[in-house]
Design a protein around this nucleic acid. Structure first.
Lengths: 241, 241
DNA sequence: ACCTGAACACCGTTCAAGT
DNA sequence: ACCTGAACACCGTTCAAGT
């Protein structure tokens, strides 16, 4: 049933503008990078690819599937670039790499958080877990430790796109939460005493430093786990505390 | 203009079925609890309240505003119930309370993650920060420490609803990731070596234990911060390490 | 097999018209 | 002031009809 036709098609010269899954995902990423999650519609994507909306369904199952594929492509890129001298350094590189990628493309943060068991997150989880194993974390703590690190990344991820959306509609995150002259925080200072007290730090702080500080706190907690009960299969450790 | 009318209305007996913001939010929570985020539509909500869809806009600005209000109501409830003998215990109670609330109502997890600077999250952040202050965490580390804890909660939050949605469409999370007989993981074992190796633990583990283990890792890391450089204003500490 | 594009079954939001 | 509900401007997805 048409099998000959398909073989013929595969042998024949492929048109450079042929509609393929890869080209669709690539075009989707461009739309997402340009205008965020809202900018990706099947109608718009079809127009960009000079085809009909229905044609896309021959290559992607749904919009969710398309978003997952776009995120997986972005994550693969990030993980490929993450290098370091030892496991701990590589964990810092991987998590910081994801952080920076989300900063460049906020839609990625939204997507990773929206579907945490999609391939993109599994890739990240697996990579972090592998490094923790190399680090010598006891087997039964590896899952918990990997979860804490991945959750930190996903938590910051979610925060990022929201901050951007907030900035577009209301005001900047610093102004919203931090500025002492903001009517919002002045009005709500009684409601949020802690946030009001650290307002200046919220204005001054660097998001990337804060993210990395969180990673260090978690790594420090993981280090305590390691010291508590060393594995039978002891991993080489360089420095003491 | 019409001020007299309004005073009159406020003085007059309020009909028990009057359309108010509180009633709308309450009805929205019922719809969300019953059918998740998808189940909340203005048409459905209007039908439930025996009114027109447009009427709702006199009391809530948008669907996002309605979701934020529903989440804030749920968070207020959670924070009111969180008690403990000391700051660390109260942090455990608060985070576990949010975890349990999300387990009961997965839409809450999705909503908290989708808009991290909404009042519901600010409440949580503020409460955690206040407890860290009471715990004696150095001032300049309070924001980082609170962020790490809140991000862990939000990370798990996001994971929860997704797991549920996954369960409905594909299979259970354990089956998806863990089962050795699952074609998915068998096919992808080479792609995810770490996840494949800890598959059995993924099947057996209790989500609540995993969540709390993550909190303990972070608290341990925070403890290390405290010991590093004690605050000038020293807080009472009970036990040693 | 792959593509087309109209049609279907929805959305959130607006707004003239009522009371 | 508050409510009504039709209308507007979209969505993702489907599907008969083409090539």
């Amino acid at each position: 049933m048409g099998a000959v036709d398909e073989v013929q098609r595969q042998r024949s010269e492929r048109r450079s503008d042929a509609l393929t899954r890869a080209r669709i995902v690539e075009a989707a990423v461009v739309l997402l990078d340009d205008g965020g999650t809202e900018a990706l519609t099947f109608r718009g994507l079809a127009a960009k690819l000079a085809t009909g909306a229905g044609a896309l369904y021959h290559h992607v199952a749904s919009k969710n599937g398309l978003l997952a594929a776009a995120a997986a492509a972005a994550m693969t890129e990030v993980l490929r670039g993450a290098e370091g001298a030892d496991p701990e350094e590589r964990i810092r590189a991987v998590t910081a790499g994801v952080f920076d990628a989300i900063r460049k493309r906020p839609w990625l943060g939204t997507q990773l958080v929206a579907a945490p068991w999609q391939p993109a997150v599994l890739q990240l989880f697996d990579r972090v877990g592998s490094e923790l194993t190399a680090l010598g974390v006891p087997a039964r703590s590896q899952f918990d430790a990997a979860s804490a690190l991945v959750h930190h990344v996903l938590g910051v991820a979610g925060q990022y796109d929201a901050t951007r959306q907030l900035a577009g509609t209301v005001t900047s995150r610093a102004a919203f939460i931090g500025s002492s002259t903001s009517p919002l925080i002045a009005e709500e200072a009684g409601q949020y005493p802690f946030l009001a007290r650290i307002a200046q730090e919220l204005i001054d702080h660097d998001d990337r430093d804060q993210f990395r500080a969180g990673i260090e706190i978690i790594l420090s907690g993981i280090d305590a786990l390691r010291q508590e009960r060393p594995d039978s299969e002891q991993a080489a450790r360089a420095g003491g505390s």
